[in-house]
Design a protein around this nucleic acid. Structure first.
Lengths: 340, 340
DNA sequence: TTGAAAGCGCTAACAA
DNA sequence: TTGTTAGCGCTTTCAA
């Protein structure tokens, strides 16, 4: 392995000079700079980040904690985060927790031992004691929560306006004439679930429709949940004519349930999803959904993390992106049937 | 930050003793062991892996290089790799290259600087000079190629038997009576494409069907390619009655094309995919496909990588997993129509 | 503008 | 069985 020492010898300067030109710190004459760069070139030298990290405590690495990379939403988000990180000269260590707080705690501890420069948490639960604990034990560590909020912690956050998105989605269905609108979403303690439900309820209220609790089902943000809950909901005699799915995966599950029950989308059932993930264009008919700007959110999260690692910012900020309703083919006007 | 020094002081021993009990190396009496562990507990000490890495050159980190995590196949694979790594006490740094060799080279260089313990390459191209170069410059570095082969390099590989899978898929269609079978796959220089095409051709030959080059189209392993090429193929007067798609994403694209052309699956067109990704159960009708055992493959790759990093193995090995044909609802017997 | 030297937190001889 | 000490490769005072 070639070290700074070899470079110094070849360039006939001291190692501290080499360090100086490499880091562009302190004074160095143009001439020695040139000599050093030449030597670096000739030896194909790359500085050992591990050794440097011992001193400046920077590893150019972020930890990214998500539930599961197989979930397309997190895959998109991860890609955005990784790209942004890479552009800024950082790498990301991927951690899949399956929402298991114990597993998450172990990851955090490991990341800390490795001296990562910060952690991006993209974890759905509104109560996450792990984050609280890291902040207590390492108040200096850059932390950004991406796509969620955690109660009782002051930390930088990058969000999508879940309420607004859900409100718009529901209003869209209401405007099409639907009155019986189901809502199927994920874990009840998930920030997304909570906010999206609020938006759904606010829209109904705006149309002076009373809340039918049978029309609200919470499970998980997965295809299987959409299928199970969707089936349950669609099997009811007084079944809804539209369903607002808490995310696209749930919507896909509802599609499956509807197909099995021979319910036509959108003629007999309108569906709106959330996220505008790759599923939306794959299913037939293509899914009307609320677009979460994952790309921008991922970028922003990394930028905030890097900023935090460089400056010691004295305030916390919350950045909220606006979602956008993307109307495709899974929603249509309610056809007035005899019964109604 | 609490260091080994603090632990030593609290336990009233030397730092080398602390190091010894922590690493379970050398002799230490039960008594001092206990003292040390107590001190570690009390101080909530965790050793600094960066500092340790300077000496033992182990960072407990692997680099994983893939084209794109948004691609569900790689997401599944990545999850498998990450899980296995985590179980063995390793982390993985995710690198998305988009098959850009320059970008890949930069990632490699960066990973090397960080002293990663090895690299898992899951890159499709059969010609990858980057891998060749790493091997030359760092012959000691553990490298495993996952899911592909690269010509001209001796390196450990974990594969699925692409030929066998493609052969079985095609035989399945032939057994159903199909004679005009299209093949749509990804990049021509991708190992998967090459081997799967061989399997496809071998099956046709077995049934003494001559090759119709119009029935073979190569583009990318993406939904869009499946859609474009599928449409092109299905628009032909003498269109195939079955299509073997190089992977599930392509199959999904073909579904879309077929739907637009109002061609019923499987009544008028049978489709087989490859990978058995999450798409297979999402689409309607559910997709007959060849299962790639990503879980096992990811695990194996990490295990090989770790083994390589611990022992200096004198031989290279190639592990080939057998794929399995999963028959679902997208394939059916050819209905004999008047024309035939 | 440059070099010598201390030291980051740890491991691993070597000595005791 | 334990402690002393010399580094790992780098950055950063401090002197020159």
């Amino acid at each position: 392995m070639t070290t700074i020492k070899d470079v110094a010898k070849l360039a006939s300067v001291s190692i501290s000079t080499v360090s100086r030109v490499l880091n562009n710190s302190g004074y160095t004459s143009e001439e020695t700079k040139k000599k050093v760069f030449e030597a670096v070139e000739n030896l194909n030298f790359r500085k050992n980040i591990v050794a440097a990290a011992m001193i400046n405590k920077q590893t150019s690495t972020f930890g990214l904690i998500i539930p599961d990379i197989k979930n397309v939403f997190y895959a998109d988000l991860t890609r955005a985060v990784e790209d942004a990180a890479n552009q800024h000269g950082f790498n990301v260590i991927l951690c899949n927790t399956d929402n298991d707080l114990k597993k998450e705690a172990e990851y955090i501890s490991f990341l800390l031992q490795k001296g990562i420069d910060g952690i991006i948490f993209s974890t759905p639960e509104i109560k996450n004691r792990n984050i609280k604990e890291v902040i207590k034990s390492r108040p200096d560590l850059p932390i950004v929560i991406l796509g969620s909020k955690v109660v009782g912690v002051q930390v930088d956050e990058v969000l999508v306006d879940n309420f607004e998105g859900a409100y718009n989605a529901t209003i869209h269905l209401l405007e099409l004439g639907h009155k019986k609108i189901g809502f199927i979403a994920g874990q009840p303690d998930s920030y997304a679930t909570i906010e999206r439900q609020k938006g759904y309820e606010a829209a109904l209220e705006e149309y002076q429709l009373s809340l039918d609790l049978e029309n609200i089902m919470l499970d998980e943000f997965k295809v299987g949940s959409g299928y199970n809950k969707g089936k349950e909901m669609l099997l009811r005699k007084n079944r809804p004519t539209a369903i607002f799915a808490g995310n696209d995966a749930i919507a896909v599950g509802v599609y499956k349930a509807a197909r099995e029950l021979d319910i036509q989308i959108p003629e007999e059932l309108s569906i709106v999803g959330f996220d505008d993930s790759q599923y939306a264009e794959i299913v037939y008919p293509s899914l009307t959904t609320v677009r979460t700007p994952v790309l921008e959110m991922g970028e922003k999260a990394i930028e905030m993390g890097i900023l935090l690692s460089k400056k010691n910012k004295k305030f916390k900020e919350t950045i909220t992106f606006q979602p956008e309703l993307i109307v495709r083919s899974s929603t249509s006007e309610l056809k007035v049937t005899k019964k109604d």
